[in-house]
Design a protein around this nucleic acid. Structure first.
Lengths: 345, 345
DNA sequence: CAAAAAATGATGTACGAACATCATTATGTC
DNA sequence: GACATAATGATGTTCGTACATCATTTTTTG
C-alpha cells in the first residue's frame, strides 16, 4: 500500500513529471487540458504531497512575522514566552519566526509595524490588533504580495486575513453574563462593567455579548456604564474606586479587559460579601491570587499558548501545501480556584 | 545561519559520520569515549535532527494502535470520528493508525485487546481504560518490547505508560463542586451524585474531588450515595427516578459519568425550579438540548478531539526523535448554554 | 506559411538522514 | 604473539520533491 508519488500522478495523467510538477506548484505555462488531467490523476490516486520530501528539497524555512503587543503586558507576555519555548520545535518543522512588538491598543504603532514588514523577507504574518482603515489597507497590500495573514485574539473582516485564530468574544461575554445572571437567582442586581478599550474588537464584543444576555434573560439586573482602563492598573484603581465611592448597591463586576492587578487591589479592601460574583479575563499571578482568596470567582482565559500553537500549525500546513488539520473550536477556559493550571502563568 | 548536519557533528567530534550515526541512533558497538565526543559536538553545535530528512529516509510509518471503547458510546464516538478526520493529515506526517474497539468498562475485554497487539506490528499504543493487575502486566510487556504507551482519559501509574493525555479528573470534580457550592450562596443543600462506574479511575477521581470541596467549604450541603449507571440511559432513568421518588429536598445534581440522555429525560419532567444547579460531563446532542432548555446548567467536557490530537503529536515527536512540543495543561471545557461549540457534537 | 510564443519532455542535481556493506584499525584474551 | 572481537571509517544507495536547464514539439498570431 505504497503512497503514490508525483511520478505515478504524471504517468496516470499521461504527462511528464515536469508538467505534473508545474501543475502541482502552480508554476504557470501549462495548458488547461494538462492541468485537468493532472488534477484528475491526483484525485484518482489520492495523491498527497510528501511533506517530508518537499520540506527537505525546498531547504528553506517559511518565514513568519509575529506582530504582538509588548511583552510587558501580562497576557501578551504569555504569547511571547510560548513562542520562545517552541522555537526549536517549529524551526525543525520548517518555520522561522521573528517577533515584532508594538504598544498595546496603539493602532498607529501597529500599522507602522505592519508596514515595515517587507514582503520579500516574509511568507506569513500573524498579528494581534484592532482594525482601522489604514491597517486593513496595509494588510491588503501584504496579501497581494502572497503573504499568508493570520489574525489573532481579535478578528478583522474575512477578506483581510486568511485565518482567524482566537475565541468567539461575543460568546465569552455571554458566558460571563450567564454565570453572573444565574448566580443572582432572581435577586435584583447592579453590575459594574470594565473593558481595556472599547475600540478593540475583542473587548467590545465581550461587553456587547454580556449586555445581550443580561438584557434578555435577567430583567432584574441593571447594567452601568463601561469603565475603560487600557489594561493599566493605575487607571483601573482610580476609576473603580471612584465608581464604588459611597455606592453600595453593586452586586457584581465583569472585567472584559485583560487580567489586571488593579482590580484585585481594589476588591481586596472591600467587604468580601460585597459582591455576589466577579468575573475577569485572562489569568495572571495576581488574578490567580484573587481566585484563591475568593475575591474573584471566575477568570475566563483564552489560553494564548494554544492560540500561538494553532497559528504555527496553520503556517505549517500552508508551507507544506497540505490540508489544514481538523481541530475543534477554540473556547476560553473558565477558571475557578479549583482548576487553576499547574504552571505559573 | 545554516542548520548543522550530522556531518558537521561528526567533523567536530573527530569521528566519521558513520560513527556519529551509530551514536545518534543508538546502534551500539561504539566506544563510550566516542559517544561522549559526539554528544559534546551535538551540544556545541545545537544539532537537531532534520526530521524531514529522517522521515523521508526511513520511509516507513510509525504504527500506532488506538484501543478505544466502542464508538456507539457517544463520548468515545467523538474520538473515533476525530481520528478518522485527521487520518490523511497524520499519514502524511509519518504515522499510521489502526483502531481497536472494546466494550466500555469491561476490563477483561480491554486486556484481551491489548494482549492481541503484536509488538512486531506496532510502534506505539494509545488506550483508554481502567487499571487492573492483568492490564498493567500486559502494558509492561508491551513497553519491554519498546512500544511507546500513551494512556488516554484515565491515567495508569507512571511506570506503566510513557505519557498520560487527559484532564486532571480530581480538579474537574472540584470545579463542579465549587460551582454548585457557590450557587447555593449559603443555603442548605442536598446533592445527588452519579457516576458511570466507580471502578474506572476518572469517574472515581471526579467524585472524590467533588466530595473534598463540598466537605471542606460547604458544610450546609449534604451528599448522598453515588448512583452507578455504567453510562447506560436505562439504568440512569431507573435509578434516578427511584432516588427522586417522594423526596423533594434535593437541590443539585452532579453526574460524573459521560453525557447521558437518561439524565435529561428524567430532569425534563421535574419542576424546572426543582434544582438549584445541575452539572454533567461530556457534551452530546442531548446534553446540548438540556443546556439550551435550561434543564442542565453546566456541562464539563474534556474535548476528546484535542486529546486525540495531542496523542498524535506525542507519537509524532517520538517518531521524529525530537523534543516533545511544550503545550499547556489540558483542562475540561465548561459549557453553559451560551458558549456551546458550533459543530454538532 | 513563417515566426513567435507557449507548452512539454528529458534529464540531472540537491536536500539530510537512514541504513547497509566491507575493509581496516584498535583492543582484549589466552 | 596469535587470534577473536570490538570499534571505526569509507563509501554508496535510497527516500520524494523542488527546481533548473535545454531541447523539442505544439499552438498561436499576423
Amino acid at each position: 500500500m505504497e503512497n503514490p508519488t508525483i511520478h505515478d500522478v504524471a504517468h496516470l495523467a499521461g504527462v511528464s513529471s515536469a508538467t505534473a510538477d508545474r501543475v502541482l506548484n502552480r508554476r504557470g505555462n501549462v495548458a488547461s487540458k494538462s492541468i485537468r488531467k493532472v488534477e484528475d490523476a491526483v484525485q484518482k490516486l489520492g495523491y498527497v504531497r510528501n511533506s517530508a520530501a518537499a520540506r527537505l528539497s525546498k531547504n528553506k524555512a517559511f518565514r513568519i512575522a509575529f506582530v504582538l503587543p509588548r511583552k510587558d503586558h501580562g497576557f501578551f507576555g504569555r504569547m511571547h514566552l510560548h513562542l520562545v519555548e517552541n522555537l526549536s520545535h517549529f524551526r525543525n518543522a520548517g518555520l522561522s519566526i521573528k517577533v515584532f512588538e508594538f504598544a498595546a491598543f496603539d493602532g498607529e504603532a501597529l500599522n507602522l509595524t505592519l508596514k515595515n514588514i517587507r514582503s520579500e523577507e516574509f511568507d506569513g504574518v500573524a498579528f494581534v490588533g484592532q482594525q482601522t482603515q489604514e491597517i486593513t489597507k496595509t494588510l491588503d497590500a501584504l496579501r497581494k504580495h502572497g503573504l499568508t495573514i493570520v489574525s489573532l485574539v481579535s478578528d478583522v473582516p474575512e477578506n483581510y486575513r486568511d485565518y482567524y485564530i482566537g475565541i468567539d468574544n461575543r460568546k465569552a461575554g455571554r458566558t460571563a453574563a450567564r454565570l453572573i445572571g444565574r448566580f443572582h437567582r432572581g435577586d435584583k442586581g447592579k453590575i459594574i462593567l470594565i473593558a481595556g478599550s472599547m475600540d478593540v474588537g475583542d473587548h467590545f464584543e465581550r461587553i456587547s455579548g454580556f449586555k445581550e444576555v443580561i438584557d434578555n434573560d435577567f430583567p432584574n439586573i441593571e447594567l452601568t456604564s463601561t469603565i475603560e482602563t487600557f489594561d493599566q492598573p493605575n487607571i483601573m484603581r482610580r476609576e473603580l474606586r471612584s465608581r464604588l465611592e459611597g455606592e453600595h448597591s453593586f452586586t457584581a463586576i465583569y472585567n472584559a479587559g485583560a487580567g489586571n492587578e488593579g482590580l484585585v487591589d481594589v476588591l481586596r479592601f472591600l467587604d468580601p460579601q460585597h459582591f455576589v460574583f466577579s468575573i475577569t479575563h485572562e489569568i495572571s499571578p495576581i488574578i490567580r491570587e484573587g481566585l484563591l482568596e475568593g475575591i474573584i470567582d471566575v477568570a475566563l482565559d483564552q489560553r494564548p499558548e494554544i492560540e500561538i500553537s494553532r497559528a504555527l500549525m496553520v503556517f505549517q500546513a500552508t508551507n507544506d501545501k497540505v490540508e489544514q488539520p481538523v481541530l475543534p473550536e477554540l473556547i476560553p477556559a473558565i477558571y475557578v480556584r479549583d482548576n487553576l493550571p499547574q504552571i505559573q502563568t
